[in-house]
C-alpha cells in the first residue's frame, strides 16, 4: 500500500532501498577479511580527525594556531590527518581500481568516490592557500595563472584569502562530506565489491 503523504512515500522508499539489516549489517562476505578492504574505513577515520581538528582551529582562530604551542599541535594534527587521509584514500583507490570495483551496478559508487577524491584535492589546496605564510603566497601566485586560464578565476580567486578560507572551511568540506555519505550509502546498497 502506497503512503498518501510525501513524508510517508520518502520513508517507504528509504526503507525499501535501505532495510535496517543492509544499512547497518553485522556480518560481511568472507572476502572482506583482507587488509585491502580496511583502507576505506581508515580514510573515513582520518577524515573525522581532519574535521574535528579543523573545527577546533576554526573556533580558536589564527592568533591561537600560529602562536601557542597547543595551537601548533592541533594545526599539525590537522595537517598530518590530511596526509593520512590522502595516503589511505590512494591505497583504497588502487585497491578498488585493480579489482574493477565498478562491476555489479556499482558505477555510481565508483564515480562518487572518484569525485570525492578530486574535490578533496581542491579542499587541501585551499587549505595550503590559507596557511597565512610565504608558502601560501607562493602557491597562490603560482596557481592563479593556470586557474585563470581555465576560466574559473572569476569565481575562484586564489589570491582572495577570505574567499579561499570560506571554500576551505565551509563549501568544499560540506560537499566532500555529502559525497562521502552518499558513497557509503551506495556501498551499503550494492554491497562491498568482490575481488576479481
Amino acid at each position: 500500500m502506497t503512503a498518501s503523504t510525501w513524508t510517508g512515500r520518502i520513508r517507504d522508499r528509504g526503507v525499501a532501498a535501505f532495510p535496517p539489516d543492509r544499512l547497518l549489517p553485522d556480518t560481511q562476505p568472507v572476502y572482506v577479511a583482507s587488509w585491502i578492504y580496511v583502507f576505506g574505513v581508515l580514510t573515513l577515520a582520518a577524515f573525522a580527525v581532519v574535521l574535528a581538528s579543523g573545527a577546533v582551529i576554526a573556533l580558536a582562530g589564527p592568533a591561537w594556531w600560529h602562536t601557542s604551542s597547543v595551537g601548533h599541535y592541533v594545526n599539525s594534527v590537522h595537517l598530518w590527518g590530511t596526509e593520512l587521509f590522502f595516503f589511505f584514500m590512494v591505497v583504497h583507490l588502487w585497491g578498488k581500481f585493480f579489482m574493477a570495483a565498478w562491476r555489479g551496478r556499482r558505477a555510481l559508487t565508483w564515480i562518487t568516490g572518484a569525485v570525492s577524491f578530486l574535490l578533496s584535492i581542491a579542499t587541501a589546496f585551499t587549505g595550503y592557500l590559507t596557511q597565512q605564510n610565504f608558502d601560501s603566497q607562493w602557491i597562490g601566485t603560482q596557481a592563479k595563472d593556470g586557474l585563470n586560464a581555465s576560466g574559473v578565476g572569476a569565481f575562484f580567486n586564489v589570491l582572495n584569502f577570505g574567499q579561499m578560507l570560506m571554500w576551505h572551511i565551509l563549501l568544499l568540506p560540506l560537499v566532500v562530506a555529502l559525497l562521502i555519505g552518499g558513497h557509503i550509502l551506495l556501498v551499503r546498497r550494492r554491497g562491498v565489491a568482490p575481488p576479481l
Binding site: A33, S34, W35, I36, V38, E83, F87, V91, W94, G95
Partner: peptide, 20 residues
C-alpha cells in the same frame, strides 16, 4: 618517500594475512 610508502603498504595489504 610518500609514494614509495604507499606502494609498499598497498603490496603488504594484498600479501599480508588477515587475522581471523
Amino acid at each position: 618517500v610518500v609514494i614509495v610508502a604507499m606502494l609498499a603498504v598497498f603490496a603488504l595489504a594484498i600479501a599480508a594475512p588477515f587475522p581471523r
